[in-house]
Design a protein around this nucleic acid. Structure first.
Lengths: 216, 216
DNA sequence: AGCTAAACGGATGACGCCATCCACTTACGC
DNA sequence: GCGTAAGTGGATGGCGTCATCCGTTTAGCT
């Protein structure tokens, strides 16, 4: 089959100006998603990037493809945080730092959570990353439990609960969101700690995919 | 000034069929808001109520007026929960039960939180109720602290944080939301408890009004 | 029963967003 | 330089929601 072009290669064969505009679009989209959330009008992104709507749609046929591209590095950063936690010799410190880091990312960028949580059928990369994150997370949790620092009845799904909760906090207006999130995370981490553990209601049977952000 | 009609009296002077339709609309709106959230199309409500759109708009000129009317009894129920807590001789039990109850209400009805949290400038009744709830809440917290059951560095604003967090959890799909919420609340209540208190980051300077649900 | 004002509901225009089309412009290999 | 394919952006049609208008129906009083 001649002339087959993978979706990885097509960015190399762009003309110089097209490449430039593509970058402008990505920058604009990044900012727009971060401040206004994931369902900002396409036209607004185009305007901010100072390109026509057509250019935007030509480069990214669907909103999802744009989202995927915009957040790919942030997802990578997220996965990096998991790796970092896995490299940490102190299991509880690893767990705590990971949770804090991810939640802070969530607050810093309104779109990120939605992008990461929402199940985009198209976004294979996300799916792969998500699985990897899930496995890494499970390992971090296992270690923290084994070290006796994390309560035994903690479920990995509880992290999804926290992420979702933090997402709700992140929905608040700018700066209070950060303060509130820190407060929430601090409380939750103390509750996660082994030792002072009163019994809990049954855990939610959730995987990362199950956490849906209400998006029309 | 003759013929002045207060906005309280106008429901009495309705014709029988109008009154009937008004009730149908309220029922339909209640269900629609609970299941689909607060920004369900007006037309959908009208269809469900089997009335024309015009009837809906005539009775409730703005969406807010409809929301106010629909949730007035739920807000009252909420205030009732605060009174109940104030009547409870056990301060911690009062606090715990109140938190659990309100969070459960939040999950049960998607629209409720948004209605209660969102600042509707028009909804004076809500404002009054909210103030009352805030004062009652502060008293419940004060008592629980005085009894030595609630950690001293707990801030009333932390309840706003929890409400907002729980709102995020409530955004999940139907049944998992309830499970996750129970789990979240259980964790948080354990963290709120006095005794096992590690230091916390500074509290968020929030009143109930500051918690905004992102609505368009 | 008959009258009238109140109430009804479908049709309608305005608006915003999506996604595509097409006439014009520009980069880049020759 | 110049030809051409790639690229561009504004205009455009489709869709769904909002909110109002207006011709028709109906409750309720006499």
């Amino acid at each position: 089959m001649p002339g087959h072009r993978s979706h990885i290669a097509d960015r190399r064969e762009l003309r110089a100006d097209a490449r430039h505009n593509r970058d402008r679009i990505l920058d604009a989209a990044r900012e727009a998603f971060a401040t206004r959330g994931l369902d900002v009008p396409m036209a607004a992104i185009a305007r901010r990037a100072e390109v026509g709507v057509a250019t935007l749609y030509r480069r990214f046929p669907s909103r999802e493809s744009l989202v995927t591209e915009v957040f790919s590095d942030q997802v990578a950063e997220c996965a990096g945080a998991v790796d970092e936690a896995l490299a940490d010799p102190d299991p509880w410190h690893a767990f705590q730092t990971l949770v804090e880091k991810v939640c802070a990312m969530q607050v810093a960028d309104k779109g990120f959570t939605a992008a990461f949580m929402t199940a985009f059928p198209e976004a294979i990369d996300f799916e792969r990353m998500r699985r990897r994150a899930e496995q890494g997370l499970a390992e971090v949790v296992r270690r923290a439990k084994a070290a006796g620092r994390l309560r035994a009845d903690f479920a990995v799904a509880d992290l999804v609960v926290l992420l979702q909760a933090n997402c709700g906090v992140a929905a608040m207006a700018g700066e209070p969101a950060a303060v509130a999130s820190r407060r929430l995370v601090a409380y939750m981490l103390q509750a996660f700690r082994a030792g002072n553990a009163a019994p809990l209601p049954p855990p939610a049977p959730l995987r990362l995919t199950h956490a849906l952000v209400t998006r029309s």
